[in-house]
Write a protein that binds this DNA or RNA. Structure first.
Lengths: 229, 229
DNA sequence: GACACTAATGACAGTCACTGACAGTTGACA
DNA sequence: TGTCAACTGTCAGTGACTGTCATTAGTGTC
């Protein structure tokens, strides 16, 4: 009658030790992001973050391999979801369509997961810091590259290609990743922090991929000059 | 009769002080790359590099803002040449064609500039270290992103577009940059260190951009399976 | 050729990210 | 309840990087 936490389908409730660790980890992320948003990345020391959660610096480094890792924790969550979403797409779908749908569809799941941890508005402020801090931006780009590597592998596998021989999966993913990053940039530069805004930006940018690679922009839609007939 | 160094058309020979600085800088780059190729990036301290050139650590940091900067000095040279080459292309050329030609054409100039400083074979060994060292790869990707930003500006300007409104320049450049990076990777992973090999890889990868973005790879050329009919 | 002027350097101290080692504390589990 | 393993704090040490200040060494001038 007291077998709480072992309900059918639900994962067994982790022990006290595990819960404590989770709490510490969450607290560290929250404190870190708050401090970074307020004082910038370089203006925040690891000691500050550890002190805010009342643990030693050494403990901080047992949870995160580096200061960058905490700062990029939210993007990290998003990356996990995207990879998962790509894997979940039907295998007979066209590669570009798979990537597109995976990113757009996983958005809700991402926001939910992130929102549970930190307010989305805080994430947006941190994202601006990421974009404007060289060291952070570099780390962010590297992780994005790692994700691309993984996605290229998935695509190649389901298309029956050898990723080391045929350059197409990597090229496709690289182009796609570039577009996504453009969308992220525009989002963080704009002033609508809503999640819907980012999704819309991604949609728009993805729709521009075809036209952007066209040979001559001046004869395509959305042209800005040369406006006689 | 002894006004050497002031020949018509040639830049006036810099003074002793300037030449000395140049020599120190070159020596630092060479020593750094040699050590990094031999002992890896993390296995090489700034003190090692400074000691190899017989200057103080403080002096090293007066020449380079960070250890990363020396390690990425050769890629930096290449980036400068590419930006220059893009600017030199005719304004009425299609954007994608401009990027393609600029990269392929600037290759000789790049190799010459690099070769004067360090042996190309050494650069290749260093490049492998860059690819396999997280911190270096991150910095490399960030610089590549900066270059892309610049190229997008150039393209947008000559197409008469506003780079902050129209996403196409950035998207094009992002896709292009992704392809270039794939080519670089394949080069450093292969065993032909020749400059011609890299140029050929770039050509091939660029030719794959169109097909890679096609909706269905299985009906295009170079297909690997589904070989009935 | 001696003389100031200034740029380049070295020596030193200090900050901060990060790591290894060891000892103390606290959940887990019999 | 006691034992074991996991978690944590403390401390010392390394390496990248910066500010400061005294010293050295090209440069232009008379």
């Amino acid at each position: 009658m007291k077998t709480v936490g072992t309900a059918v389908g639900a994962p067994p409730r982790p022990g006290l030790r595990e819960r404590k660790k989770q709490r510490t980890r969450d607290a560290l992320v929250r404190a870190a992001l708050e401090l970074i948003a307020a004082r910038g990345y370089d203006g925040t020391t690891v000691d500050d973050i550890a002190a805010a959660v009342d643990v030693s610096q050494r403990t901080f480094f047992r949870y995160f391999a580096s200061k960058e890792e905490v700062a990029l924790f939210v993007p990290h969550l998003a990356e996990l979801r995207v990879a998962e979403a790509v894997r979940a797409r039907p295998r007979d779908e066209a590669p570009l369509e798979t990537l597109r749908r995976a990113v757009l569809d996983s958005w809700d799941a991402i926001n939910e997961a992130v929102g549970e941890l930190v307010p989305l508005e805080l994430h947006m402020r941190v994202y601006r810091v990421i974009e404007s801090t060289p060291a952070l931006l570099a780390a962010h780009l590297r992780r994005a590259a790692e994700l691309e590597e993984e996605l290229a592998g998935i695509i190649a596998e389901r298309e029956g290609l050898d990723v080391d021989t045929d350059p197409r999966p990597r090229i496709l993913v690289a182009a796609f990743g570039g577009v996504i990053r453009v969308a992220e940039r525009r989002w963080s530069a704009g002033d609508d922090p809503s999640t819907e805004a980012l999704r819309e930006l991604m949609r728009t940018c993805l729709d521009h991929v075809g036209p952007a690679l066209a040979t001559n922009w001046r004869t395509t839609a959305s042209l800005k000059r040369h406006n006689e007939t």
